[in-house]
Amino acid sequence: MADSLQVLIADYIKKAPDYENRALMQVAAELLKAQAQRLEQAEGEVDGRTWDHRKW
């Protein structure tokens, strides 16, 4: 996640007056982390399968 986005999120969570909106943003931040992990895994799997020697 880009640093600037992290700053925006942290700032919003700190000052959002509505609990529900704050909660949505907290969960969004967690989902961004989960997406980053899934993207890394999926990219790794594509690389791994591309370099599968049995398919050379």
Binding site: M1, L5, L8, I9, D11, Y12, M25, A28, A29, L31, L32, Q35, A36, L39
Partner: peptide
């Protein structure tokens, strides 16, 4: 933050 996070979630 709202639009930026929504757009990033969707693009990801």
């Amino acid at each position: 933050a709202l639009a930026a996070v929504a757009a990033t979630l969707t693009a990801n």
